[in-house]
Design a protein around this nucleic acid. Sequence first.
RNA 1: GCCGGUAUCGUCUAGGGGUUAGGACACGUGGUUCUCAGCCACGGAACCGGGGUUCGAAUCCCCGUACCGGUACCA
Length: 500
Amino acid sequence: MRLRFAPSPTGRLHVGNARTALFNWLLARGHGGTFILRIEDTDAERSTPASEAGILDDLRWLGLDWDEGPDIGGPHGPYRQSERLALYAAHADRLLATGQAYYCFCTAEELERDRARQLAHQLPTKYAGRCRQLLPDDAQRRRAAGEPAAIRFKVPHGREVVFDDRVRGRVAWHTDVIGDFVLVRSEGRPAYNFAVVVDDGLMGVTDVIRGEDHVSNTPRQLLLYEALGYVPPRFAHLALVMGPDHAPLSKRHGATSVGEFRARGYLPEALRNYLALVGWSPGHDDELLPVDELARRFSVDAVSKSAGVFDVAKLDWMNRTYMKQADPARLGALMTPHLRDAGYLTAPDEEGAAFLASLTPMVAGAVDRLEEAPARLRFLFVFDAAAALAREDVAAEFGHGDARGVVAALAEALETAGPLTDRDAYRALVARVKEASGQKGRALFHPIRVALTGETGGPELDLAAPAIDRGAALAPSSGLVPIRSCRHRARAFASALARG
RNA sequence: GCCGGUAUCGUCUAGGGGUUAGGACACGUGGUUCUCAGCCACGGAACCGGGGUUCGAAUCCCCGUACCGGUACCA
C-alpha cells in the first residue's frame, strides 16, 4: 500500500490539509504501507522554499513522518514536481504521438467567448473543441511559426466514467460534460491533472485520500491513467472542514494553520487527536486515543461523507486534557517561549528549567492553551502591594471581617519562619496564622492569598506559596526575573495596608 | 446555467425497518474547594420537508429545500 500527501508550498499548512495528511499517514502506518511526501510546486510564482520548509516542519511537529520525500529521497524521485518536468514532457509526447492529445492554439478571448455562449444557452461549460480536428501537420507548422500552443487531452465522447469512491460509493460522470482539458500550458508547465497522474502512476500510489474539491478531477485523471496505461489508485474523497458558519474554514474564522495552533500553545498530540475525529469515528465511545491506536483503528470506510465543523471549544478541551497528562519537564520547556514573550524570563538554565517544570501542576488543567500560562503564573513574577490594594476586588477583601488581622499575623509568622519550600512548610505556617488570627476558611485563606499573590484568584495556595519561595531562592543566573519571597510580600502588603 | 455530492442534539458523531435514538464537547443546575479553573453528579437538547414502499420508516426509494464542491492554460 502506497499513499501520499502532496501539498503546494504556497503558504503554511492548513489544518484541513493537515487532516488529509493525517488520514493518509494513519492508513499507511496502520497497514505497514509507505507514506510519500511530494511537493507540488509547478506554480512557480506562488511556491516558495520557505513555505516548503514550513510545511515539512509542521508535519514533523504533528508527528507525521514520511518514507519518501524531497528531503530524504526515495526510489521514485525526485519528489518535487519542479524537478520532474522532463517526465511530464515525455508523457505528453507519448499522448501526442498516439493521437490522444493535440495542440490547441485558442486564445483566452476565444475561450471566454465560448464559455459565455454556453452559459447563455444553459449548456455545460467546457472546451468547445475548436482545435481538436486540426491536422498534425498544420499544428506543427503553426508551432514552427512561433504560435503559442497548449496541449489538450482528447476526451473520448459518449462514455461514462465510473469509480468506486471509498467514502462516497459509486460516482459516475459522462465524458460529454468534461471537455478537452489542458495537459501542458502554452508556456510549457504541466497542468495539475496531468502532473498528478504522471506522478501517482510513476510512484506506484495505490490509494489516494484527498479533499472533495478533487472529485470532479477524478474522472479526468482516470481517463489519463487509461491513456497512459497506468493502473489507477483507489480514491477516497474527504468532505471539507468548515468554520462555525458552515463556510469552508478560512482566515476569517481565526487560526487555520498548524503553525498558528502551535504558536498558541496547543500540543501536537491534542491537535492530531482532534483532527482525526473530524469526519472519522473510531466506532466506540473513547475519543482520547494515543496515536498508535488511532493508526490501528483508522479505516477509510468509516469516514463520514458530510462536512464537519472545526470546533475550537472541543479542541481546547482535548488540549487541556493532554496537558494534564504531559511530562512536566516537556511542558515547562513548551511554556518557556510564552513566558519569555511576557517578559518573565530570558534563557533559563538548568535550575530555571527545573523550576518551570515544577510549576506545571498550576498550569495544566487550568488553562486551555500554553499561551495562557503567563497570565496564570503572573503572580510569581509581578508583585506590587500598593497596586494590588488599589484594585477594587482586592480592596473589597478588607471591607469586612478581620482580613487585616490575618495579614498582620501572616507577616509576623513569616518573619520567624523559614522559606515555605514545600507544602508542609506552607501548611504549618497557615496553622500558626489560623491560631494567631482566630480566622478560618475563606476569612483565613483569602487574605493570605491576596497578601502573597496580589490577586483574588489563582492556583491553589498549597502550590502557589511554595512556588513563590522556591522561585525566590533561584540564583540570578537561572534566567528568570527576580521573584520576591513570601516574607517580603507579606511584609510589603501589611505596610501598604497600614498606609492605606 | 451545467455537473457532482451531503443532510441525526448548538458542534463532532454512534446507530440504523420495531431503540427510553447512545457518547463526547459546549450549555444549565447542584456538590467539592480559600478563589478561578478542575473534578463529581444531575439536566435540557436531534433524525431537513413532502410523498411513496411497508403491519411498521429516523433508517429503503422518489421529489423538494438548504448547504458544499467543481465548472480554468489554479492546485
